[in-house]
Amino acid sequence: MPEHYAPVKMEPLSGRRKVFNRSLHVLLYLCAAFTCILLVGIIGYIFYRGLPNITWKLLSTKPSYLSDSIGILPNLMSTLYLVVFTLLIVLPLGVGAAIYLTEYAKNRRLVAVIEFATETLTGIPSILFGLVGMLFFCQFCSLGTSLRAGAFTLVMMILPTIVRTTQESLKAVPQSYREGALGLGSGKWHMIRTVVLPCSTDGIVTGCILAVGRIVGESAALLFTAGLAHSLSGFFQALSTPGATLTVALYVYVTERGETDVGFAIAAILMILTLLINLAAGLIGRWLGKASHGRSA
């Protein structure tokens, strides 16, 4: 009975709805624009103030009271040592934990406890890590204020990042691969080593890059554990001596010595590193993802 249906007639929007639409639409664009302008402003300002102050002398010397000059080579090296040493420890730990969670663990309650613990670690502020690191590694384990103690503190902090990214890529490995390997007579560890891990390198590498980003940017946790020194030494000697990373050096130079120009130079270096790390995380994730897909296909 088609005559019962009235033809649909679109009513024009009422004034109130028009205002609602228009204003929210404008607000959406405004907020997004604000976020972008903020970012461009911050990056632009840091480069504007910082890049002119990055000189070869700044990068290649250590600070000297004799010639009253400042060089950040020790801080660059401390950052590098810290990144290397922290990753050396946290990588096996984090990847191992992820493997346990996805491949071995059968007790669901235990998995829930471990996952709750990792989430809790993610939420703890870095200054609390710094305090506990100072109490436990520096004092209780008598490592003193040193890069080693700083690295161990960062291990606690970064573990969740590695666990999460590795776990995600382990979960993405098709179950049939595992069954295939086991069906051919492989043991579980052999299966993990030769089938599962190679398929999840992209996640592990992405995790590493994210971890590097956090180590480079961290300051509060290192203030009391890795110290404020600007000394230059080899890898193994540096581990047992205190050393300020770039971020800590920035803080010290700006707040305690009023060296704003050096601060901005370090900030510019940190920004470049952050940019590179973000780019690398995106690219390597995509590239390795494709590569492993290509291999599996």
Partner: peptide, 15 residues
């Protein structure tokens, strides 16, 4: 936005 998340906190402090 991701880049904003990656900027170290001391840099925010400096600015």
């Amino acid at each position: 936005v991701d880049l904003l998340a990656g900027i170290p906190s001391v840099v925010y402090g400096l600015i």
